[in-house]
């Protein structure tokens, strides 16, 4: 008995957390998949198996298409804007500027706020009756219009800007850490070689940051799929359903429209999207280690 404990002490120590993960993570993933094959309404019921019918319905729901397309549109723009501006800000802060920690704090500060607060701040700022538009009008530019929140074609930009404002700090911090990790001597060697600074960035430093890019893309991608509170606070999916995201759709179906089956199907599709991002990343990571 003693020998059994000695030999398996690590397994025994890990088993409670493994059990919890098995039940509450993988167990409920399985449960959700099971619910998605039923016509459950307000409560899960397993006596009416319909196979993949909920998925068929999901992909024939116009609102899901809007939400799903929005995720890629919002995601693509958000990635592009946040990564490029985050990198530029990190490069600017890396120029041994004065009061560096002051600027770093300014950029990092929005990160300390919840997405709900961010959403409300930007809702006020972009609100045509009390935000930036009113301010510019008071300055005398009466023709100025800022209707991003009310125009279905531009509302996605409102989301992108608010999400960028929140996410930029993290991206900047990661890139700055990467830039600081680059050997000073590389810069000196480049200076002696006579390579202009922008070329050093383009040909040497940015390629050296490839692992940071990977981390940033994965982190941001996950936050895109999860994005829920920001949309609820900023636009609530509107105008109409034009700024819907899959997470909002899922929540709506489950708790407002009492259509648990369809909601579960959308959750499974979201999980699939996350896995499609994560698996290549994990694969690359483990291959690098090996």
């Amino acid at each position: 008995m003693r020998r059994f404990f000695q030999r398996h002490v690590s397994q025994i120590a890990l088993s409670p957390s493994l059990a919890l993960i098995a039940i509450f993570l993988y167990g409920f993933i399985g449960y959700t998949v099971a619910v998605s094959t039923t016509t459950s309404k307000a409560f899960p019921r397993f006596d009416n198996f319909v196979g993949l019918e909920q998925y068929w319905r999901l992909f024939h729901t116009p609102r899901w298409h809007v939400a799903f397309t929005n995720m890629f549109l919002f995601g693509g723009l958000f990635l592009l804007v946040t990564i490029s501006l985050g990198l530029i800000i990190a490069i600017l802060i890396d120029q041994r500027i004065r009061a560096e920690s002051f600027f770093r704090s300014i950029v990092m500060y929005p990160m300390a706020m919840s997405f709900v607060v961010t959403g409300i701040i930007w809702q006020w700022l972009l609100n045509p009756t009390l935000g930036i538009e009113v301010m510019v009008h008071q300055l005398g530019f009466e023709s100025f219009r800022l209707d991003w929140l009310t125009n279905p074609n531009t509302v996605i930009w409102a989301l992108v800007i608010a999400a960028f404002w929140q996410g930029c700090g993290l991206v900047m911090a990661l890139f700055l850490a990467g830039l600081r990790g680059i050997d000073e001597d590389i810069w000196k060697a480049a200076a002696v070689d006579g390579i202009p600074a922008w070329r050093v960035y383009v040909f040497i430093v940015i390629p050296m940051l490839a692992p940071v890019f990977l981390t940033v893309v994965v982190l941001l991608s996950l936050s895109i799929v999860r994005a829920f509170d920001l949309v609820v606070a900023l636009t609530n999916g509107g105008p109409g359903v034009s700024s819907d995201l899959p997470s909002v759709f899922m929540f709506d179906m489950a708790f407002r429209r009492t259509n648990l089956g369809l909601s579960a199907a959308s959750a499974v599709v979201m999980l699939g999207t996350v896995l499609a991002i994560l698996i290549p990343y994990l694969y690359a990571e483990t291959r690098e280690r090996a």
Partner: peptide, 21 residues
């Protein structure tokens, strides 16, 4: 004068090779 115009070449302790090339 800038380093590049001094007609010098330098070898560093950490080699300072460009790792991506």
């Amino acid at each position: 004068v800038e380093p590049k115009d001094r007609d010098i070449a330098m070898v560093f302790q950490s080699y300072a090779l460009y790792p991506t090339m």
